[in-house]
């Protein structure tokens, strides 16, 4: 399976993501600059964390206008897995690939620590190797991770099982403790916590690795004969 890690000016978790895929997951991966307009050769798209365009205007607001985002939308429409982490999640929200928006953390502080997440939905291409309700330790590092959407959208997220991860206890004020959501089709996941920073026990947790392994498993099951 071949992944693209999209790099914007100001991305700073791109190399962590690259390392997670190449060295821990053992799959092919390229760093792809934001002016690319074709992602056809990739089977999965990863939008890393950071501060694209210095968070000018709003987090992710300028990045979602990049030419690569049209290609990311096409990949999403084609059903390919698209994962946005932290600033990557914010970009997916700005681009409309996922519903809702991010507000500043309730306590107005940049929060950087490992938190406990609950796997709310393990019936997705990103979470199939977790148990439903499993508690996992994944680091967060964000100032604007306070997820917000209107009541109708929240009801729809719940009804369609689009909430993939929640914080086991309140971290930043997010509605319903939402830490990660998918689109309706289930092939686009945005999450504030950083699974790519939890892919080896040496890093303090390897709980994020199963997320990447789930993506690969889903791809193999649907693309490789006799997998």
């Amino acid at each position: 399976m071949k992944f693209a890690v999209i790099v914007f000016p100001g991305s700073n978790c791109d190399v962590d993501m690259y390392h997670a895929v190449k060295d821990e997951l053992g799959e092919q991966v390229d760093l792809v600059w934001h002016d690319a307009d074709n992602l056809d050769q990739y089977d999965g798209i990863l939008l890393p964390g950071g501060f694209s365009y210095g968070d000018y205007l709003r987090s992710g607001a300028i990045a979602h206008m990049s030419s690569v985002m049209a290609a990311v939308k096409r990949a999403a429409e084609a059903g390919k897995p698209v994962l946005g982490v932290c600033n990557g999640f914010q970009i997916l929200l700005e681009s409309g690939l996922l519903p809702g928006a991010m507000l500043r953390n309730k306590n107005l502080k940049f929060i950087c620590r490992t938190v406990e997440l609950s796997v709310e939905n393990n019936d997705t291409m990103f979470t199939s190797l977790y148990e439903k309700g499993e508690k996992i330790s994944i680091p967060v590092a964000h100032g604007e991770g306070n997820y917000y959407c209107d009541d109708a959208t929240l009801a729809k997220l719940k009804e369609n099982n689009q909430i993939a991860f929640t914080y086991a206890s309140d971290v930043n004020g997010s509605l319903s403790d939402i830490a990660g959501i998918t689109n309706e089709r289930g092939n686009v996941l945005g999450m504030m916590p950083h699974p790519e920073r939890a892919v080896d026990d040496l890093l303090g947790s390897a709980d994020g690795l199963k997320l990447f392994q789930s993506i690969v498993k889903h791809w193999r099951d649907s693309h490789v004969v006799n997998a």
Binding site: R58, A61, M65, P99, L103, Y148, C149, D150
Partner: peptide, 8 residues
Amino acid sequence: KLLSNPVI
């Protein structure tokens, strides 16, 4: 399109 985010 850009200057505001109509969601919030």
